[in-house]
Amino acid sequence: MSPFSQINMAKSQQIYATFVNGKVITKQVYDLYQQSFIDSPLYTELYNNLEHFTQLYQHIGFTLNFNVDGEFFYISRSEAEEDADTNATKIQAMLLIIARYWVDKGYDLDDLMTPVIGLGRTALEEIAEQTIYDDIRQALGIETWDKALNYLSDRNFLYQCGDKHYILSSAGMHFLNLHVEKYSQEQD
């Protein structure tokens, strides 16, 4: 029996489509209908068949990356480093704006992953009103704050959990925690 026959073809195709659209696959996704995090079947498929998918992506010119701390998968390609750097810069800058706003308000960063708290309409309006944040957004080439949120959401770094209400995914929180840790080390 071929290793390919043991893999769910529909899920494999969904995984590929997710990756080539610049998204990450997180262990859990936010389900609007259940209003809670649920396990991602795509993550489970990848995790349970890691060797297969690692080889598959190597054969088609990608590297399958698994981030243990953030519990997410993504692919990379050395030829696409410039595009990846641009995307990473946009993602990190937008996440840092959110974190800076959040911390300045005296909130705990972990609350950004809590659906009943998260990033609501008021917070989004206050971020949009701050000139420095708006200048950064414009410098990144993102036209509006709605497009910035869609940019993060489309790549699974942010999940919408209501009208103008968002929470960070494990991948988004992982990047924030890396920056907090790096900043803390620099202060020591």
Rank of each mutant, 00 (worst) to 15 (best):
P115V: 08
I117F: 04
Y151C: 01
T86C: 09
S184I: 15
I142L: 06
Q130T: 08
N65A: 06
K90V: 07
Q13T: 11
S12W: 04
I167S: 06
T86P: 04
L152K: 00
K164I: 02
D135H: 14
I136P: 01
Q160Y: 02
L95Y: 10
F53C: 00
Q14A: 11
M173C: 07
I91T: 10
Q92S: 11
T54C: 07
I75T: 07
Y183Q: 14
F157L: 15
Y16C: 01
T131I: 07
I25Q: 06
L119R: 12
L50G: 04
L152C: 03
A123I: 00
L42K: 02
M113D: 05
D85G: 11
P41F: 03
G162Q: 03
Q138H: 14
I132M: 12
Y133P: 04
L50M: 11
E125K: 15
A123L: 01
C161D: 08
A93G: 07
T144W: 01
M9D: 12
L109V: 15
L158C: 08
G22H: 00
E186V: 14
L56V: 12
M94N: 04
E181F: 09
A17M: 15
L109A: 10
V29E: 14
H165V: 08
N87T: 07
A10I: 14
C161L: 06
F4C: 05
I15V: 05
F72C: 02
S5R: 06
M9A: 13
I25C: 10
F4A: 10
I25V: 10
T26Q: 02
A139N: 15
K27F: 05
A171D: 00
E45R: 01
H174Q: 08
L46Y: 08
Y30F: 09
I127S: 00
L42W: 03
F4K: 06
E186Q: 13
P41W: 00
E126Q: 15
I132S: 12
E125N: 15
E82M: 14
F19E: 00
F157V: 14
N156V: 01
E81C: 03
S76R: 04
K147Y: 07
E45Q: 10
I15H: 03
E181M: 11
F73W: 01
D110H: 04
F62L: 05
L124I: 12
N156H: 09
L96N: 14
T89D: 15
Y107H: 08
R137V: 09
Y16N: 08
T18G: 12
E186C: 10
W145C: 09
A80P: 02
I91Q: 13
N8Y: 03
Q185V: 14
L64I: 05
N8D: 14
I136S: 09
I38D: 03
L119E: 04
F157C: 13
T54H: 07
Y47Q: 09
L119Y: 07
T89I: 09
H179N: 15
L152R: 05
V68F: 05
H59E: 11
L109G: 02
Y16K: 05
E181S: 08
Q185H: 15
I91Y: 11
Y159F: 15
P3W: 12
M113S: 12
L56E: 10
Q28T: 08
Y159P: 07
F73R: 01
L119C: 10
W145D: 13
E79S: 10
A128N: 03
